Simulated scan of single mutants.
Amino acid sequence: MAQTPSPAAPVGANVKSAVRTVELLEFFAGRPGLHSLAEVQEALGYPKSSLYMLLRTLVELGWVETDVTGTRYGIGMRALLVGTAYIDGDEVVAATRPVLDRLSDETTETIHLARLDGVDVVYLATRASQHYLRPFTRVGRRLPAYSTSLGKALLATHTDEEIEKLLPERLEPLTEHTLTTRAALLEELHAIRERGYATDREENTLGLCCFAVDIPYRTPSRDAVSCSVPVARLTPGREQMIRDALFAARERLALATRHL
């Protein structure tokens, strides 16, 4: 006799559980270190009992780790493996690797490859500066697009109407130089379209200037490359050299990614 299948869980409950799992992992990814159950519950607003059960399940599966007391939680090793797999399998990262290496050698400064993700840019690859005084940005870091040269280079490939929809309600200042009004940002994006490159003059980090160009393998562009230079090392001649190197790299990047 055929067995009667057990009743399935409601679809809505499965979807809610999946959403909560993703939101929980994103919470830990955006807040390094370990956090108490109360901290997580306050931030996400989930019922404490169901949150505890979800955390315990994710700990058992390796997506979340705890301290020796078992009362504080953080992102687990399995999340690192999945993140690494994304980078390793990304065709753009692979195709642009030789160009990034060459740009790093030519400028001797810090080079970044980043992708637009909603209102932010996410760093996919970096090449460290050859100088003692240098910025540090890890792969996977997420920053507001409006405050970075990478983000502005990518926003500039969208129409003004698309940009209005992409931008957050409020442009929070990261430094005293950050553009915090839509009018000022749109004016800057118009200028970027004219000159062909974007700048971040201490808008994201004090003491640091960045220059970026988009990679035009799709329209609007999704990825961009930048060069970051401490203000103390940025002479007019060096700035021109970096711009020229970025324009040349953009041509090589367009060739390298034309099949994608």
Rank of each mutant, 00 (worst) to 15 (best):
L154T: 03
L54Q: 15
E161Y: 04
R102V: 11
F28H: 07
I192K: 02
Y73T: 04
H177P: 01
I242Y: 06
A156D: 10
A8G: 11
I242Q: 10
A249K: 04
S221P: 02
D105V: 12
Y46L: 15
A13D: 15
R201W: 11
A256S: 15
A156L: 11
Y123D: 00
D117G: 06
C210W: 01
Q3T: 09
D244F: 05
L260V: 14
I75P: 00
P10A: 14
L150G: 08
A249S: 10
G89R: 01
V68H: 10
T84P: 00
T205F: 05
P236L: 03
Y132A: 14
T110N: 08
Y132D: 14
H131I: 02
T199Y: 04
E169L: 12
I215K: 06
A38H: 10
R138E: 13
A2M: 12
A198M: 09
R102T: 12
A18R: 08
V22W: 06
P144A: 13
K152A: 11
T71W: 02
V15L: 13
A153R: 06
L234G: 06
R193F: 08
S228K: 02
E39G: 03
M1E: 08
T84I: 00
L206S: 13
F28T: 07
E26C: 13
L174D: 02
T205Y: 07
Y86T: 00
G237K: 11
T126E: 09
S147R: 01
L51I: 07
L55K: 10
D160A: 13
T71M: 11
L208N: 04
L44V: 08
A38Y: 09
A125E: 09
H35C: 06
R233T: 03
R127F: 12
A85W: 00
L185G: 03
Q130S: 14
T137E: 05
V229F: 03
P173M: 08
V121L: 02
G118C: 09
R97A: 13
H131Y: 15
L155A: 04
V93E: 00
L55M: 11
G151R: 03
T235K: 04
T157V: 08
E176N: 10
D105H: 11
D88R: 12
V92E: 01
G118K: 08
L185K: 02
E39M: 10
H259T: 14
L116M: 14
